[in-house]
Computed example of a mutant assay.
Amino acid sequence: MDIRSAIAIFTAAATLAGCDFMSSDQSKASPVRPEVGVVTLHPRNVAIISELPGRVVASLVAEVRPQVAGIIQKRLFQEGGEVAEGAPLYQIDPAPYRAAHDSAVAALQKAEAAVPSVQAKVERYQGLSKKNAVSTQDLEAAIAALAQARADVATARANVASAKINLDYTIIKAPIGGRTDKSSLTQGALVTAGQADTLTTIRTLDPIHVDLARSSAAMLDLRRAMNEGRLNSSERNVVVKLRLDNGWVYPMTGRLEFTEAKVSQTTGTVTLRATFPNPSRLLLPGMYARAIVEEGVAPGGFLVPQRAVVRNIKGEATALVLDKDDKIEERVLSVGKTIGNNWLVTAGVGDGDRVVVEGLQLVRAGRQAIGVEVVIDDATGELREREPTTAKIQAKG
């Protein structure tokens, strides 16, 4: 064997030995740790928001009906327009009522004219009675006649007032201010006092009410949370926002006025009423809306993204947490309300815990992982941004 062949054989042997050594090293190396996205939790005061279904209703409603009978001469308002309280709406033919009023005035004048003569007779009889020139019976009769004359005056005066009221009723006025509906009758129509058919309807639209429905169970949960100190709430001056049927949020806020002291036997709900300013008349009675009600504040709550929470075979809410040693730990959570795309968690996590929100399928409890801070978009629940991880991976490696 020459020198060149010996060198070749030695080189090949060294190469094979090196390969065996590297394979042995790699087999002893630890497995590659998966990278997971995490969100670090911190306690905060969480506003508890509820969305309640409701209907818009007018704050005042008045059905206009005639109070005297007659023929409608004129309609004095524009249909669908705004009217002020006391504004004239219809003119009923006033001729018969004016005549009745004038007759009542004449009867009053006649009754008043009869009083002075009877008064004088009584005074004369009183003087003669002192001289025994007139009998007591005649004096008493004169006094009774005077009382009758005065009563006739009072009756006639009341008839004048009644006739004046009926004459005034020939102009039908708006009992409240607001927007009118269409007129159900036109000029020339005959109306009667207190008829069933309305002439028009007036609705006050500013301010306007929204009647909301809340389940009695939700009401009890709210009371319990307040009693246990898990929720700080002031039932006075509760601010309410409104989401309209097309998804648009009404630009003006309202206030919760009251809660009914009864539960509907058919729906099991309690009615709440909120009042909103409505200067542009955008809100109309009958509209469907959802009220966004801030019921209170949960002090020291934790918001865990919904995408991080899963249910185990027992039905418990669980999440994977990356501890300080970068080891995966499964936690059982006590979850409350949903706040946007998060769960309000009252137990199971603490300040500084890193909850896994991305890469859940890559890890399991007891294994190690590399945690990468991510940011969750509260509006969509999706990842919004991610921190660079190259330097962290190199440092971990």
Rank of each mutant, 00 (worst) to 15 (best):
residue 2 D to H: 06
residue 25 D to S: 09
residue 270 V to F: 00
residue 192 T to F: 14
residue 387 E to I: 11
residue 362 L to E: 09
residue 117 S to P: 03
residue 319 A to K: 04
residue 360 L to T: 05
residue 255 R to G: 06
residue 10 F to D: 04
residue 383 L to K: 09
residue 235 E to W: 04
residue 213 A to Q: 12
residue 59 S to G: 06
residue 177 G to W: 11
residue 27 S to Y: 08
residue 342 N to S: 11
residue 234 S to M: 03
residue 257 E to C: 00
residue 320 L to V: 08
residue 225 A to F: 01
residue 142 A to V: 05
residue 296 G to K: 00
residue 197 D to R: 15
residue 110 K to Q: 14
residue 266 T to P: 00
residue 230 R to Q: 05
residue 74 K to V: 10
residue 324 K to R: 10
residue 301 G to T: 04
residue 83 V to S: 11
residue 167 L to H: 13
residue 85 E to V: 14
residue 23 S to G: 06
residue 7 I to N: 03
residue 74 K to C: 10
residue 158 A to N: 15
residue 17 A to I: 10
residue 47 A to C: 01
residue 141 A to M: 08
residue 244 L to G: 06
residue 252 M to K: 08
residue 60 L to A: 14
residue 124 R to A: 12
residue 147 A to S: 15
residue 340 G to P: 07
residue 108 L to Y: 11
residue 261 A to Y: 03
residue 109 Q to D: 12
residue 42 H to C: 02
residue 327 K to L: 07
residue 129 S to D: 08
residue 326 D to G: 02
residue 165 I to S: 15
residue 332 V to D: 00
residue 356 V to P: 09
residue 321 V to S: 07
residue 59 S to V: 08
residue 27 S to E: 14
residue 41 L to M: 07
residue 9 I to A: 12
residue 255 R to N: 05
residue 208 I to Y: 08
residue 119 Q to P: 00
residue 178 G to R: 11
residue 104 A to K: 06
residue 108 L to M: 14
residue 334 S to Y: 00
residue 263 V to G: 03
residue 55 R to Q: 13
residue 43 P to N: 03
residue 53 P to L: 02
residue 179 R to W: 15
residue 80 G to Y: 05
residue 10 F to P: 00
residue 76 L to G: 10
residue 374 V to P: 05
residue 293 V to K: 02
residue 60 L to D: 14
residue 190 L to I: 15
residue 253 T to F: 01
residue 169 Y to A: 15
residue 63 E to F: 11
residue 22 M to D: 13
residue 41 L to A: 04
residue 97 Y to T: 10
residue 5 S to I: 04
residue 301 G to Q: 03
residue 303 L to W: 03
residue 175 P to R: 07
residue 346 T to D: 05
residue 253 T to R: 09
residue 60 L to G: 10
residue 387 E to M: 10
residue 260 E to K: 03
residue 77 F to R: 08
